[in-house]
Computed example of a mutant assay.
Amino acid sequence: MFVPLEMNCSTPIHHINTIRKHVSRAKGGRFGKLVSDRGATLVSLILSDVVGDDLSVIASGPTYKDNTTVQEAIDLLNRYKIWDEVPESIQNYLISGVESLDREQVREVPPRVHNYLIGNNMKALQAAQAVAEQAGLSTMILTSQNSGEAKVVAKCVMGIAKEIQDSENPLSPPVALIMGGEMIVTFNWEDRDVFGPNREFVLSSAIEIAGRSNIVVAAADTDGEDGQGKAGAIADGDTVLRSTLDARYYLDKHDAEIFFDALNDSLEFTSNTNVNDIVVVLVGPK
């Protein structure tokens, strides 16, 4: 039902989940309330795949409180121009819920419901940082809340990497720059293929550092699937030069996987655990 909305990369996950909450009997705290109303105790152990770790957004908050409204869900469906694609039964359900007291949201965490955040992007970045420090590198975690356009963010991050090489600011090499979050790719729905923000980030980075020595960049989605396709990619200053393909063409076409597959530089794995993206940039002396 929400595939066009989910694949619209300008749609924040909290907007998608606001809609989900109001067409579900479990989301938006309703599962927690159901358990609590029956006198039971519920302990929820949460892995966050949401930038900022808002417990009401992760998995649409089945055991947490919710501050959204049915009207917001209707407004969002209209805003993203998919109201007419929603089944009439769902439209009627949402419209009737605007005035229904029986459908009030769970505004407080129900009694005997306990939520614990046990894993998130920052924990993954800190683990990567520990590995880099054990290898003798200086490290900097730039952010766990990157949500920018992948190919644009790449220009900024590669600018920092080049600055480290050229002026030893803000750190002296060897350095590991580490970053996480959930990047986006903006594209036409009709032109979709095996797109992926991490692979697009790496391809844009490869163009920025082409010809440079001692900079390596890798990015992957922690669950092993980057948008649609393989987990991510790895590149250095020789990547663009040793490819027979036009890097800018494949960046503009959002076909980074084809570009990296041709070089055997795609990253492929399955983890079954999603805590968003991990980007690592290794910077050595110039």
Rank of each mutant, 00 (worst) to 15 (best):
I258W: 00
L101W: 11
I95W: 03
I95Q: 15
C156T: 11
A161G: 04
V50F: 14
R212Y: 04
S213M: 01
Q228K: 12
N121K: 11
V281C: 06
R248M: 13
H254A: 12
N276Q: 03
M1P: 10
G224C: 09
K81Y: 04
F187E: 05
Q126R: 13
N78H: 15
L137S: 11
E225R: 14
G211Y: 13
E133C: 11
Q91M: 12
N17H: 13
D75P: 09
K286D: 08
S36M: 04
D166E: 12
N78E: 13
P111T: 04
V194W: 02
A256V: 06
T63V: 08
A40E: 03
A26M: 06
D191H: 12
A128F: 00
A130C: 03
D193M: 02
D66K: 13
T68R: 10
E149F: 03
T273D: 01
T18F: 10
V152P: 01
G148D: 13
T18H: 02
K33C: 09
K162A: 07
Y64Q: 14
Q228V: 14
I16C: 13
G180F: 05
A130D: 13
V185W: 00
F31V: 06
K155M: 12
D53W: 06
E108S: 12
E200P: 06
V35C: 09
L251G: 09
